[in-house]
Structures are given as structure tokens and as C-alpha cells.
Design a protein around this nucleic acid. Structure first.
Lengths: 140, 140
DNA sequence: TGACTTTTTAGAATCGTTCTAAAAAGTGTT
DNA sequence: AACACTTTTTAGAACGATTCTAAAAAGTCA
């Protein structure tokens, strides 16, 4: 029952995004969107899927993460050149980045204000302002 | 004369950083630190060196950029998972990032304030706060 | 079900970056 | 200047995250 309901929700999300609800997209979507917000890498999601008994190739995990991002279901975070992080929280927010562990932690963006920024270069449109607070020395 | 003076400056910088003033480090240092602040990638600096008649391998360019960064002579900027950018401006500042062209532009950091950030996670030390304003649609 | 389009997949390819281990260069001492 | 010693440079291999390829599988719709 609850599985059915959840699945329906994911299917709707996919349909709204113009993505066919394939088995892989539904199952990965369920992992990603069922439960609290999270940050994943492609490898981590692939391992998690495998551990949950979901059969999906790494290429499909990459494709799916990119498609979800293009559709606005995920947001890509750049904090480290080594790997791409995807965030299920697509609302206005920023991040703590633990440089030692690679862990990310959300900072709610509703109260954060970046003031005294100069105007955007002539002709340019601001797409997004990312604030990354790099911290070290704490676990998680 | 002026060349000699410049070289001396680079040599001092290298010595202060605990780096032996090898031919490659002096020449790359001259390209990087002579003149206004700039943003480079390893490939771009390697090409520029070649164009200036400087014989240096790509591996050495990478090594040198990393050593300069560790020594505080450069700062690494993460805006894009595809390549690493190095900034000769190591003072407090932020960036406009032109997503179309990959170009970076400095934003002086003396007036920029990020307010209402939550406290750093318990036990963590803030290393740095990076603000990246992603813009599109303008050339430059 | 059939006809058609999209998606998935394994494995190859790509590309920025790092590693390796051997040659070259820098340093301090005689 | 030559020596002994350490560090650096180098070409090319290796690496790792990500994308590409083109063939098989699955989804869609009449």
C-alpha cells in the first residue's frame, strides 16, 4: 500500500518532468526522494542501489542523475573537483563542506543574505549564488 | 635590469615559500605573478609557457601549481568539476563565474558580507567562505 | 500485438590529473 | 670546480570520474 502510494508519487514527478517512468528511474527516484533531503554521488547511489537489490548500471545512474538535474528534481553542487555531488534539496540554500570527510550539510537559505555584491557584469543574468562554507576538523 | 629585478622578486617569493628556485618555477612564477591578477588552468598555463618559449612539461605545471597553492602563492577555485582554476589573487574575494564561457571574474571581498549563517558544526573550524555568483549570457 | 521511440547497458573511450622511476638540476662542502 | 647528496623534472603510464557507442531491452500507443 505505502509502496504503491510512494511509487505513484515518483511516477507523477517523472511524468511532470517529461521523463518516462522506467523501472530504473522509479527505483532510483524512490531512493532519492523517499525520506529526508540528501546528498549523493553517482558511485554512492549505485552502491546503495546494488545493496537494495536494484539492478541498474553505473551509466544509467549517471544518466538519471543528469536528467533529474536538468529537470530540476536535483541540484548539482560543486565543492570539489574530484566528484559531482547531487542534492535532493532544490530550494534556496547553501552548504557546509567538510573538507576532511567530503561530507556536505545544508544551510537553510531563507535568512542568509549576501550583501554588497557588485552588479552582474553588463548583459549577464545571475543564475544562482552559491555560498560554500569550508570547514575542517569535525566529524560529520 | 627590469628582468633581473623581477626575477629576484620571484626568487624571493619562492625562497620564502620554501621552494627551490628552479628554472621552471622561476619562469612559471614570472608568468603568473608579473602583471595583474589572473585565473589559469594547468593546460592554459602550459600552452602559454610553450608560446613564450619556456620548456616545461605538463606534469611540472601541475606540480608547480599545486606547490604554489600549498605555499599560499595561489588559491584554487572550484566552480566546475571539469577543470581546476588557480587564482593569483589570494586575498579575501569572491567570483563571478560565466557558465557559458568558463571565465572567472573577481569580486572584491572587503565589502561583501554573508550574514545570518548558522554557527559552524560543533568542533569544526571555518577555513573559508566562498561565494560564487553564476552568471550567463554575457561575453567577457 | 505490432510498430515505433526511448532507455538501458557493457564496455570502450575520454580527459584532467597524478604517479613512476630514471635523468637532470640545485645545494653545500671541500 | 668537483663531489656527494637531495630535490626536481620529465615522458609516459596509470588512474578515476564521467561520457560515449551501438546493440538489446523496455515503454508507448494505436
Amino acid at each position: 500500500m505505502s509502496i504503491q502510494r510512494t511509487y505513484t508519487t515518483v511516477i507523477e514527478r517523472l511524468r511532470d518532468a517529461g521523463l518516462r517512468p522506467t523501472r530504473q528511474r522509479k527505483e532510483l527516484g524512490k531512493l532519492l526522494f523517499d525520506g529526508p533531503d540528501r546528498h549523493v554521488t553517482a558511485e554512492a547511489l549505485h552502491s546503495e542501489a546494488a545493496a537494495s537489490g536494484i539492478r541498474v548500471s553505473l551509466a544509467t545512474v549517471y544518466n538519471t542523475l543528469n536528467q533529474f538535474t536538468d529537470a530540476g528534481l536535483l541540484r548539482e553542487i560543486v565543492v570539489d573537483g574530484d566528484r559531482a555531488y547531487f542534492d535532493t534539496n532544490v530550494s534556496n540554500h547553501h552548504h557546509f563542506y567538510h573538507v576532511d570527510s567530503g561530507a556536505l550539510q545544508d544551510i537553510d537559505g531563507t535568512n542568509v543574505v549576501v550583501s554588497n555584491l557588485p552588479e552582474a557584469p553588463h548583459g549577464a543574468t545571475v543564475e544562482r549564488i552559491d555560498v560554500v562554507v569550508r570547514v575542517s576538523g569535525a566529524r560529520q
